[in-house]
Simulated assay, not measured.
Amino acid sequence: MHSTPMARTQAHWLWLAPLVLLIALLAGTAIGETSIPVDTILKVLANHLLGANYAVDRIDAGIIWNYRLSRAIVAACCGAALALAGVVLQALLRNPLADPYLMGISAGASTGAVAVTVAGLGAGAFTLSAGAFAGAGLAFGLVVLLAHAASSGTGGGRSNQAAGAIILAGIAGSQLFNALTAFIITKSASAEQARGIMFWLLGNLSGVRWSDVAIAFPAALGGLLICLWHRRALDAFTFGADSAASMGISVRPTRGLLIIAVALVTAIMVSIVGAIGFVGLVIPHAMRFIVGTQHTRLVPASALAGAVFLIGSDILSRTLVPGQVLPIGVITSLIGAPAFALILVRGTRTR
């Protein structure tokens, strides 16, 4: 059986993915308020990773290794993880509008993280990531229960109504947990804490260091491997749970594992960089136009595109306003909202 030219083209980009990601990481490290030549970056990397002894300015070396490179890697991990979360939720819920931000998962994770850090919930027994995971799980559970209550017993057109109900439930859940976050901050945080937390909630990579890389990278890699392992199950879920069961897939355990993975990865990323919107919504849609709907290609494509997109957004957040760093969530929304509107209009016209 011969592969088509389109299939060959779609397969070839996989070999270019590491190169594209490397170029994006180099750009994220080189571009900023002060531009740094690529050869200087390579020398610093050789000094740290290979034990070389190139003569490099100490300030440039500190900026590259301690600030920009770790920041670019965390941005890539966060972008890939959020894009994968969007892919999984859209397949499991059979709803093109599902993503961690709209489903309330990001808002719940933010509430959990703020409750642990500001209100001292758990008296030190919970870490920031554990608090964020608990909040994310609670938010998603609430959204599912609310959507089930809203769509049960509807008779004809139930699947369509259920798809709309879960998005409306997600919006309600997001607003509830955003309000809880604001309440906790107002009640328990000092003025200085409140300013820092509000900036963090909009997405902030300024405080990222190598210790964050050690958390973000395994989480993103684990999420990618889980999605790739269940890629055929995700294909089946796009046609419904009954279709997945008819193909021999254990529906409840598989769906439960994927949802837990999405909640955990989202919580970890939110605990590091705050809530960032539109990545999990726009990137999977854009990649479906390019590589198709099969998750064998869609999963790695979305991970790569999400990583590159968030690195680019971080570059813009540092360079768009001279002398200031914008929250990265502002950049993703400014880019993601028009992009999603374009995707929505194009998708409607092609039906």
Results as ranks from 00 to 15, higher is better:
Ser211Leu: 05
Val143Met: 10
Ala91His: 02
Gly280Ile: 04
Arg209Ile: 04
Ile41Met: 07
Ala107Leu: 08
Val279Phe: 01
Ala219Met: 09
Leu93Val: 11
Cys227His: 00
Ala286Tyr: 07
Gly203Met: 05
Arg231Leu: 06
Arg68Asn: 05
His2Arg: 07
Thr266Gly: 10
Ser110Tyr: 08
Ala245Pro: 09
Ser129Tyr: 12
Leu142Thr: 10
Ile259Arg: 09
Arg351Pro: 01
Arg351Asn: 08
Ile171Val: 07
Arg255Pro: 04
Ala216Cys: 00
Ala163Ser: 15
Leu138Asn: 12
Cys77Gln: 02
Gly280Tyr: 03
Ala179Val: 04
Gln193Gly: 11
Leu228Met: 06
Ile315Met: 11
Gln324Pro: 03
Pro253Ile: 04
Val321Trp: 04
Ile166Trp: 07
Ser317Tyr: 04
Gly124Ile: 10
Pro5Val: 07
Gly62Phe: 15
Phe199Asn: 06
Leu82Thr: 03
Gly32Glu: 09
Arg252Tyr: 10
Leu304Ser: 13
Leu258Ile: 00
Ala194Pro: 12
Gly28Thr: 06
Ile328Asn: 03
Ile171Pro: 03
Gly51Asn: 12
Val116Pro: 14
Gln90Thr: 09
Arg255Ser: 10
Ile315Phe: 06
Val279Ala: 05
Ala27Arg: 06
Gly62Leu: 15
Ala241Asn: 13
Ser159Gln: 15
Thr111Met: 15
Ala286Met: 14
Lys43Glu: 13
Gln175Trp: 03
Asn178Val: 05
Ala24Leu: 11
Leu176Lys: 05
Asn95Glu: 08
Thr350Ile: 08
Thr111Asp: 09
Ala24Val: 11
Val114Gln: 10
Ser35Gln: 12
Met269Ala: 05
Val118Ile: 14
Ile23Met: 09
Phe183His: 07
Arg195Tyr: 07
Trp210His: 03
Arg288Val: 08
Val20Phe: 10
Glu33Gln: 14
Ile36Leu: 10
Ile167Gln: 05
Leu176Ser: 05
Leu221Gly: 00
Tyr101Cys: 12
Trp210Leu: 03
Ala24Phe: 02
Ala17Gln: 04
Met269Lys: 00
Ile31His: 02
Gln161Asp: 10
Ala337Gln: 02
Gly62Thr: 15
Gln324Ser: 10
Ile64Asp: 15
Ala241Ser: 14
Val265Asp: 00
Arg94Asp: 15
Ala30Phe: 00
Ser333Ile: 07
Ala194Cys: 14
Ile31Glu: 02
Ala52Lys: 15
Ala134His: 13
Ala241Trp: 02
Leu14His: 11
Gly277Asn: 01
Thr238Cys: 08
Ser333Glu: 04
Ser106Ile: 12
Ile311Asn: 05
Leu180Ala: 13
Ile283Cys: 11
Leu50Ser: 14
Ala261Asn: 05
Ala132Leu: 08
Val299Arg: 01
Val265Pro: 00
Ala245Asp: 09
Leu16Thr: 01
Ala303Asn: 04
Ala109Gln: 11
Ile171Lys: 01
Ala72Met: 06
